[in-house]
Design a protein around this nucleic acid. Structure first.
Lengths: 246, 246
DNA sequence: ATTGCAGATTGGCATAGACCAATTCGTGCC
DNA sequence: GGCACGAATTGGTCTATGCCAATCTGCAAT
């Protein structure tokens, strides 16, 4: 099998950084090109893949550095804050905007509304140790008086829905796929344009089966894992009541 | 905000292909470079992102074409075949290898074994309409006599475990993250090196809480969505027995 | 000691061009 | 008509180079 040169260069660089601690600086691109007897373009292509994989971090004017390994995890059925707090992280959240928009075709479909119906929109930047890791846009239908104030008082969106508006979620569905960072998203998340992201669409229903939330989240692909854990409902033998998994 | 030129080119190309049907050919890279008054390198960078997003497909010697949109979905709790069949797809599976290996540190940890313990390994290529979409390596501990023959007779791994070895799954956990295709994987999946993949680690437990399967799957990021659907166990009010979601 | 500015350093973007590899297509042969 | 082969076409890789933008460094002024 033919392996392109930039891929060999990538492996060389991986060897170079294998023993380096987080934060260590790589040689400059121009030095690497000379050292590995190739062009700077090829070196950049190799480094780009390592950046995408989350192994390296580039800063214009400064250099290229060994990055933190991928660590965070998110379970789909609880809230962002609970998820990360349970893992021992320090999650934060910054509300960028709270407004009301008219549902377009797609949004109306997901929330079972007629297009044009008013929907509350909450745009938030999720952070971890003050580093942005996700951009989240939640859409909630129905009257929610003083949503901004209620949220400001509580912080958590789910807690606000439950305590201030008696909206309790009964089921959620997450759809996860990959996408690429466009300039605007890259800017907000402080990452490079073109980095792979995990695009998560979440729909939540109440006990009556009515959709109460439709959210579009973009997570850094190099910093996030998505965890889905499920008990299998044994439709044939409704016996199993064993302890939860270790 | 500064938007690089290749990104503008990308948008131009997106406009160009907006009305084209699947399979339609783009102008050649050299033509696009001239048309959009830029270099071929810049055009290639723009096209590369559209390829990664699954909007375009490149074939050396032939051209660049509009690709099938992302469509498939997979729920985490049933088998690959059931998942796709339920969505109306025609899934296939090709067993590449069935053998027994010694568990390394990581594998032993996931399956609660001692390193060096023998583990069955089933390597499969999952296909859809004869197109490879995922590479799956399953590890199952314990004695499984004539596993290869039993599987050949049934096709499905989960059915084989249940019917031939009385191994019934009770809970599963999927961990989803992004990664990039290395040359070997890219070769098997028939995609380009460097394309983003969804890397899914699945662990399955039986009713006694013993891990019975640990699987590493690589899905084409441009062809796959991952769906996790959950009922929220209402720990406070164990009442909810409403109909499943619409 | 602190601040401010200028220059050097480093990554980011874009160009032009060469050659390779896979595919396609036309031509001519059978 | 069908097949084989070679040329043309098209994407794949790599080089060399220039300039821009962000950052860092060090010196000078305060």
């Amino acid at each position: 099998m033919k392996v392109p040169k930039y891929y060999l260069v990538k492996r060389e660089i991986q060897r170079l950084i294998a023993d380096l601690p987080v934060g260590a600086a790589l040689p400059t691109e121009r030095e690497l090109a000379e050292l590995l007897e190739t062009s700077r373009t090829t070196v950049r292509q190799a480094i780009s893949e390592l950046v995408v994989n989350g192994r390296l971090e580039r800063t214009q004017g400064s250099g290229t550095f060994v990055a933190q390994p991928k660590l965070m995890q998110l379970r789909p059925l609880t809230s962002f804050s609970q998820d990360l707090a349970a893992e021992g992280w320090r999650p934060g959240s910054k509300v960028l905007e709270i407004d009301v928009v008219e549902a377009d075709e797609e949004l109306a479909g997901h929330l079972q509304l007629t297009p044009g119906a008013p929907v509350h929109r909450v745009t938030r930047l999720r952070t971890q140790e003050d580093e942005p890791i996700a951009l989240e846009v939640a859409h909630i239908p129905g009257p929610l008086p003083d949503l901004a104030e209620e949220m400001a008082a509580r912080g958590s969106l789910y807690r606000t829905l439950a305590e201030a508006f008696q909206i309790d979620l009964d089921a959620v569905e997450d759809i996860v796929e990959t996408t690429l960072a466009d300039p605007e998203t890259a800017n907000l998340l402080g990452i490079e344009v073109g980095l792979p992201l995990l695009l998560v669409h979440r729909t939540a229903w109440d006990a009556d089966g009515r959709p109460v939330e439709w959210t579009r989240s973009l997570f850094r692909g190099d910093r996030f894992r998505f965890v889905a854990r499920q008990r299998l409902r044994d439709t044939e033998h409704p016996a199993s009541a064993a302890a939860d998994r270790p």
